[in-house]
Design a protein around this nucleic acid. Structure first.
Length: 565
RNA sequence: CGGGGUGUAGCUCAGUAUGGUUAGAGUACCUGGUUUGGGCCCAGGGGGCCGAAGGUUCGAGUCCUUUCACCCCGACCA
């Protein structure tokens, strides 16, 4: 491509609303432009990068025998009503009517559509397993789009769906896809972790997320410093805590604690480690068509993990609750405890099971119980509801710490969550009709493009990896009026182009500094500088990642470039 | 959906408290000259329904009402 003809609208100034490096540089370097909230155009350079990523995905999916297809974007809402998600998905699902007044949705994910494609066509276990995928624009009407491509409303996602006759075969495919995804991210040049994840609203028996490590990530993941363990904090677990400090041994007794409400105050009042206190967290659990107040109890030094808490109840979510609502049902804020709690449902964290010498609220203003033996609560509802903290001990004995991650992939063992309600069945070896055992595997393509920039940039601009660069080589003619420079530039350009190298010739009538800054902003891996050194028979290769210039004899430049690319 | 903020040239922003020539700067763009190793320089030029609608006023970018859009914090997020 000749730079003089290329549509690459670079700019010195970033859009005022851009926060993240990826957003700033993709906009400034002319890869993307914003249309409306959460909607972006892919300009020529951006489109090339997207294609690069898609090609890598296609190759790795091909390698595990997954087959690409493409489903229609506009989906009749009947399918969504069959699965029950038409009502459940909420306002993120964009619904509309056609001229005949029929309901449609814009696909935010395509479980229903894919099940619909195979049902009645795959009817025997002999046709299984099968893995079908597409790379396609998705639409989710996000409540709050942000961070440029990271959380748009319209985005490109690769979504794969596998169908199996047994859970064992699903396990095999799940591992195969995980490995394929790892290869994809490695080829893209990304630092990432595969972590245990909460299965969320999509349902299913297990899931993992692929997290690109980045401070700008929206997810918090807990990672072990010793073993391979990593998990989203929504699902992270640890070794049982051993409390080193001395237990506050006491006879069971009601103790006056005037106006002592918080864990900090209690800890100070009794001079005791917070681990010996029972923390209570009140919340409202939201179900499909009802809600209730629930009290969660944890060790005083732990925090409640909302997602775990909701899962412990089978609730959709838990939300904060006003103090006045607590009073209405007779709860005493600041002094709530699990003993004899008959006003609302309670859930206790597993770490409280059989705990001795605990201090907890007495459900009476200004009083706590001391010397509480939690084993009296053994019949109560216990669950894992704590949130792993930095410094907690991993089950392997190592230390857990936090990292921020960008979720670029999420793989699920779905089971029959969709095949059963959609009546997608096959006949097994015994001739029995069974719903497909399914897996679903998502990967955010446009988000990957932003992730590459998040991990690979400096204050000058993008630094594309070889596998993602829109063009590998930029030939810069320093002075377009110097006919020798032009001649060499043109010759090298033709040679590289004819040998399949993706190359740009910067033949613009601009000064050296301007063109260099532009090249650095865009982030071509290599720029060949044809400048005043040509008089001495030399040109230079500028490597974007190191910002180093290497002298090369002009006669040898073609071979040298071919070595690099 | 709650709280906050911003809408003026392609882009980044002044101007709005206190209404008053023809609405500004930088940058980008066009023309000519000049320059060619780090976003030069000189001269000239085009470009605006001051987000939209209504109102107050002799007069509104500026004041009032309504509305739309975008952004930030939170909630939400297969």
């Amino acid at each position: 491509m000749r730079r003089s003809k290329a549509f690459i609208p670079t700019s010195k100034e970033a859009p005022s609303d851009a926060q993240l490096a990826s957003h700033i540089f993709l906009a400034r370097a002319g890869f993307t432009s914003q249309v409306a909230s959460g909607l972006y155009n892919y300009l020529p350079l951006g489109k090339r990068v997207i294609k690069k990523i898609e090609n890598i995905i296609n190759e790795e999916m091909e390698a595990i025998d997954a087959q690409e297809l493409e489903l229609s974007f506009v989906t009749p809402s009947d399918l969504w009503k069959e699965s029950g998600r038409f009502d459940k998905f909420g306002s993120e699902l964009l619904r509309f009517k056609d001229r005949k007044n029929n309901d449609f949705v814009l696909g935010p994910t395509h479980e229903e559509m894919m099940v619909n494609v195979v049902r009645d066509k795959i009817t025997s276990y002999k046709q299984l397993p099968i893995n079908l995928y597409q790379i396609k624009t998705k639409f989710r009407d996000e409540a709050r789009p942000r961070f440029g491509l990271m959380r748009g409303r319209e985005f490109i996602m690769k979504d794969a769906y596998s169908f199996h006759s047994s859970a064992e075969d699903l396990d095999r495919e799940f591992n195969a896809v995980e490995n394929a995804y790892k290869k994809i991210l490695t080829r893209l040049g990304l630092e990432f972790r595969v972590v245990e994840a909460d299965s969320g609203a999509i349902g299913g028996s297990g899931s993992k997320e692929l997290m690109v490590i980045s401070d700008s990530g929206e997810d918090t993941i807990a990672i072990c410093d010793t073993c391979e363990y990593g998990a989203n904090v929504e699902a992270a677990v640890r070794q049982n805590v051993e409390i080193s400090s001395e237990a506050p041994e006491a006879e069971f007794n009601k103790f006056k604690t005037p106006n002592i409400k918080t864990m900090d105050e209690l800890s100070e009042f009794f001079s005791v480690d917070k681990a010996y206190l029972v923390k209570s967290v009140a919340a409202r659990a939201m179900y499909d068509d009802s809600d209730e107040i629930v009290l969660f109890f944890l060790r005083g030094d732990d925090n409640l993990q909302d997602v775990k808490a909701a899962n412990s109840l089978g609730a959709n979510e838990i939300v904060e609750i006003a103090e006045s609502d607590l009073e209405k049902v007779g709860l005493v804020s600041g002094f709530m405890g699990p003993l004899d709690m008959d006003k609302v449902k309670i859930v206790l964290d597993n770490s409280l099971k059989d705990a001795k010498n605990m201090i907890c609220g007495a459900n009476e203003s200004d009083f706590h119980y001391v010397g509480v033996d939690m084993s009296v609560m053994s019949e109560a509802n216990f669950a894992d509801i704590y949130e792993v903290k930095e410094g907690d001990t991993c089950r392997c004995g190592g230390k857990l710490f936090y990292k921020k991650g960008i979720e670029v992939g999420h793989i699920f063992k779905l089971g029959t969550t969709y095949s059963a309600p959609l009546k997608a069945n096959f006949l097994d070896e015994q001739g029995r009709s069974q719903p497909f055992i399914m897996g679903t595997y998502g990967m955010g393509v446009s988000r990957l493009m932003a992730s590459v920039v998040e991990q690979h940039h400096d204050d000058k601009g993008c630094i594309w990896t070889k596998s993602t660069a829109p063009y590998l080589v930029n030939i810069m003619i320093s002075n377009i009026k110097d006919s020798d420079q032009v001649a060499l530039g043109e010759k090298l350009y033709e040679e590289l182009k004819n040998n399949g190298v993706e190359v740009v010739l910067d033949d613009r009538k601009d000064r050296f500094g301007f063109k260099m800054k532009d090249a650095e902003l865009i982030g071509f891996p290599y720029t060949v500088i044809i400048g005043k050194e040509l008089a001495n028979g030399n040109v230079q290769i500028y490597t974007r990642s190191t910002c180093e210039k290497m002298d090369v004899s002009s006669s040898n430049i073609y071979n040298k470039v071919m070595e690099l690319v």
